[in-house]
Simulated scan of single mutants.
Amino acid sequence: MRRAALLAVASILFIGFAVDPAMAQDTSLASSLEGSLTSRSIQIFLLLTVLSLAPGIAIMVTCFPFLITVLSILRQGLGLQASPPNMLLVSLAMFLTFFVMEPVFTAAWTEGVTPMLEEQITAEQAFERTVGPFRIFMSERMDPDTYLALAALRPDAAATLPGPDAPLSVLVPSFMLSEMARAFQIGFLIFLPFLIIDLVVAAVLMSMGMMMVPPAIVSLPFKLSFFVLADGWSLIASALVRSYF
């Protein structure tokens, strides 16, 4: 009896769907809407993830690591621990980065972001076009030996050559390591004059028998005056910027 009732209900439902195609259409429409909402949620989640990683990405693929490393070594060479403060050094490095990278940002926006906003290309094509100018910038500053050393660690990338078409997973760390190595080379040249002043002041204090006086305290005014008279900030900033052009 119960089985007969279930069969009757199933028959009525089947007849109702067959007779009323609008109901079936509403069901398929609801399913499509649910699928579109799910895909839109995934897109929003991915967008928020990219935005949260944007500061790290900006540091990895621009000249910011090189600039902030050189400026930090300069402050250490002057013998100043907290002046200029970290916020000032980071701000200066950020604006110098914007000055150097503005053509790259403009090209990436024009070639990738603008066509995507105008719905002329897909998101995948926009990503490739946006990354293209950064690939060219990184490949021009990258040390080929560093790239080959990292590529040899991966069997699938060992046959690739350093260039704009290299895999990002190898290109980005090669670029960062090359920038850090170059920053330490320039930092050594910047640190050397201040080291000579420290050695001269230490030798003078030793000859005068003032062994209890810290040489760093006495040499600090001489280093500051030497740096200010040479217009050090302008010279270093202009030299760092010219190294990218």
Rank of each mutant, 00 (worst) to 15 (best):
P144N: 09
S139F: 06
P133H: 05
E179Q: 15
D165L: 04
L168A: 05
Y147N: 11
R141K: 15
T160E: 10
L168V: 04
V172R: 04
R154V: 00
T146F: 06
M176V: 13
R135N: 07
G163W: 03
R154F: 00
R182E: 15
A149D: 06
Q125E: 15
A157L: 01
V131G: 06
T122A: 13
M142P: 04
P164M: 04
A123G: 15
V170W: 00
T146S: 10
S169Y: 07
F175G: 02
E128L: 14
D143M: 13
V170P: 00
F137K: 07
V131Y: 07
D156V: 01
A152E: 10
F137E: 03
L161D: 11
A152C: 05
A152K: 13
V172T: 01
A152D: 09
D143I: 15
P162W: 03
V131S: 09
F137Q: 07
A149Y: 05
A166C: 00
P164A: 05
L168C: 01
F134S: 01
A151S: 11
I136D: 10
G132Q: 12
T122G: 15
L168G: 06
L153S: 06
M142L: 14
P167H: 04
A151G: 02
E140K: 12
L161W: 04
V172F: 06
